[in-house]
Design a protein around this nucleic acid. Structure first.
Lengths: 120, 120
DNA sequence: TCCATATTTCAAATATCGGTGAAATATTGA
DNA sequence: TCAATATTTCACCGATATTTGAAATATGGA
């Protein structure tokens, strides 16, 4: 993912309400949730929510579709994964200290780094 | 890591110059770089850089120490890892589609999900 | 068609951010 | 102490972002 798109995504996620929206939508997967259901769950006004949803959608983190009189929003898992991948791989150069903090298995089988763990 | 700190970190990283600073500093590890060296590498004015460095430090993403008349800044790998870990684990609930995009080995040994890869 | 529901759009007010350059601070060495 | 270097602080200004509430749009059902 290009850095300019990562920046848009980070800006979009760097807001209380918007990060909550993402957290709410991820577990709902592709089914997503209607705008009204999101507004009720998060506790924001309809117009305020609409503003934040459009920011997230513009950043490519959400998709939307119409269903009857509702608009259903869903998290775009590829985009979210792309942002995380950028932070891990491009921004942080897959630094072992950083990878270690993510709780992911760090793939070190094919390289001979000297282990310099940062947590003593 | 608490969400409020993650939000500060995301806000800090959601800026062109500041993301560049992080990218520059990570490979330098704990040795870090002097503010002047960063300014030259990134191409920003001293006062502008100072502003951005203080934002990153306030978010906890950088550490600073004085060395003679220089101030050395270094990336805080634990903090960076913490942000990524939050996105992966708390925000995205370790969603397999999202993990798959990160290029990390996804730990699926102890669960029986049907593999539904999102890249066709 | 008319009404209720669901969502978006708009404009105005406010708040926050970022860039600039001058001045202030701190450190080193002559 | 004086001058040079390295960095931060400050005040100002314009650009962006966010909130709010009213109005506009679209849809489905009576």
């Amino acid at each position: 993912m290009e850095q300019s798109r990562v920046l848009k995504s980070l800006s979009a996620m760097a807001h209380d309400t918007r990060l909550e929206i993402v957290r709410l939508l991820v577990p709902h997967g592709k089914d997503g949730l209607a705008a009204g259901a999101i507004a009720e769950a998060i506790g924001v006004s309809a117009s305020g929510l609409s503003f934040h949803l459009s920011q997230l959608e513009a950043a490519g983190l959400l998709t939307s579709r119409k269903a009857s009189r509702h608009v259903i929003y869903a998290a775009d898992c590829k985009a979210l994964g792309g942002v995380i991948a950028y932070l891990l791989n491009d921004c942080c150069a897959r630094d072992p200290d950083i990878c270690a903090c993510t709780g992911q298995d760090v793939d070190m089988g094919h390289q001979d780094r000297q282990a310099h763990a940062s947590q003593p």
